[in-house]
Design a binder for these strands. Structure first.
Lengths: 231, 231
DNA sequence: ATTACTAAGCACCGAGTAA
DNA sequence: TTTACTCGGTGCTTAGTAA
C-alpha cells in the first residue's frame, strides 16, 4: 500500500507520529535526538537518522540549533498522518464516507476536456457503468473540507488506468462514488474524480455524472453544494 | 514508546492494520499471502512471516486452508490498534479525554490496601497534590467502556514510581486526572489509577480522590457512575 | 494455486568518533 | 551538551525450493 509514493518506511511514519504528539504539527517543536530516541526506544543515532530522512522526504522542516532542533511537520507530512488516521477511522468508526462542502465554480475546467478522451471514456463506461456528461462539475472546497478530503484515501476507489497516445501520456485517476446535494435537490449517481496523486492543499474537487448536473439542478457559480463521498 | 511491551515491530502493526481493513476485526477474514503482500508492497514470503509473527505474538488467530488462510484479530490485537487510533485522535481531535461508564462495586478492593503504603502515599502527596482517602472507588466498566479505555493510553499520565521493601517489590502505577459523576453530583479532583500494564479486557477501574466519595455522594454498589478522564 | 523453509544479500541499527 | 558521520554486526527481506 502506498505511503504517498515515496520510500517512507513505516518506522519513519512512527517517528512522524511521535513528532506530531510532541506538538510539531501546529508549529515548531523543540526536539532533541536523545529525547526522541527515548520515545522511540532506539538509539540517538537512529533518531537522528530518522529526522534526517523525514527532512529529505519533505515531511518535516528543521532548524538545528546548539542544544537540539526545532522541528515542524510540513503539509505533506500532515497529509500522510491524516491518511493514516483515516485508515483507523475506517477500522473503528461505523460511519464511513466523507462529506465535503464547497462553492460551485467554473474554474478552468481542464477536467472537462480530459474525460472526453476515448482512453478514459471507455473505462468510465466499463467500470462506472455510464458515460459521463462531457464536462466536470468543479467545486471550490472550503478550508474544513480541504482537510477532510484526506480521509477519502481510506476509501477504495475505482481505478481508471493511465494510457498514452502518440503525443503524450495520460495519468491514472481515482473515482469515488458520491451523492451531490444542490439547493434544488440531490443526485446520487455521481463520482468524485481525482488524479492519482492529489496534491495536499488542493481545494478543487471535480465531479462527473451521467447528466449535466448544472443544468438539471439549475445551479450557478457560487452556489454551495455538498458532496457525500460514500464507500 | 511501548507497543504493549512486546517485541512487535511497527511493520507488524502495519500488517495488523491491513488485516483490520480487510475485515479481520469483526470476525474471520480470508487472506492470502500474495494478496497481503500486494497491499504491503512486499514479497509473499514477508507477508507469510508477518502473519506468523502476529500469530506468535497472539495478535491474530489463523486457520490455514488449501487456498489461503482465515485470519481474525484477537482482542489483544484490537487493543493494539485501538491504542494507535487513540494517538491519532489525540493528534487530530481537539476533544481529548475519554469518558467511561460503569457500575459501582466493592470488588476486592485490593487497591485500597496498596495506596496506603508509604512508598505510594508519599508520591501521591508530591505528584497529585493531595493525600488520597485510604480506599479506592471501584467501578465495573460496561463493555463499551472496556474498549474505550484503551484510548487512555494516548493521554500522558502522572507516573507513580515502583519501589520495594524487604519483602517484595511494588510496581509502578499511572494516574489520570478525572471527573466523576454520581447521581448526586460531580467531583472533579479525582484520579483514575491503573497499574503500569493494564490487561486488556480488564473491566475494573479504580479511582482515588482526597475525599471518601462513596460517602460524600451517598453512592452504593450498582449505582451507575460516569468517569471523564481528561488530559 | 497455497504456506513456509533455507540461504544469500542488503539495509538498518548502534557503538564509537568528530565537530 | 548537541547533530551526524563511519563502520561492523545483526536481522530482515527476498529468491529459490519444498510440501
Amino acid at each position: 500500500m502506498d505511503l504517498s509514493g515515496r520510500t517512507v518506511g513505516y518506522d519513519e511514519l512512527r517517528t512522524l507520529k511521535m513528532l506530531a504528539l510532541a506538538g510539531a504539527l501546529g508549529g515548531e517543536s523543540k526536539v532533541s535526538c536523545s529525547g526522541l530516541a527515548g520515545k522511540l526506544d532506539a538509539s540517538t543515532q537512529t533518531a537522528s537518522r530518522r529526522l534526517q530522512r523525514l527532512d529529505e522526504e519533505g515531511l518535516v522542516e528543521r532548524e538545528i540549533v546548539s542544544d537540539g532542533q526545532w522541528v515542524s511537520i510540513t503539509s505533506e507530512g500532515e497529509a500522510l498522518l491524516q491518511r493514516e488516521y483515516a485508515h483507523y477511522q475506517r477500522i473503528f468508526e461505523s460511519q464511513v464516507g466523507v462529506t465535503l462542502t464547497g462553492a460551485l465554480t467554473s474554474g478552468m475546467n481542464e477536467g472537462g476536456h480530459y474525460i472526453t478522451l476515448p482512453g478514459y471514456m471507455r473505462q468510465f463506461t466499463e467500470k462506472l457503468g455510464y458515460e459521463p456528461f462531457a464536462g466536470t462539475l468543479n467545486v471550490d472546497l472550503d478550508a474544513e473540507s480541504v482537510r477532510e478530503r484526506a480521509r477519502m484515501d481510506a476509501l477504495d476507489p475505482t481505478v481508471i488506468e493511465g494510457w498514452e497516445d502518440e503525443e503524450r501520456t495520460y495519468g491514472p485517476a481515482y473515482c469515488y462514488p458520491a451523492t451531490v446535494e444542490f439547493d434544488a435537490g440531490t443526485y446520487d449517481q455521481a463520482h468524485v474524480i481525482a488524479p492519482e496523486r492529489t496534491h495536499h492543499g488542493d481545494d478543487q474537487l471535480e465531479v462527473i455524472a451521467p447528466d449535466k448536473l448544472r443544468e438539471q439542478f439549475d445551479a450557478d457559480d457560487g452556489d454551495t453544494i455538498t458532496i457525500h463521498v460514500h464507500e
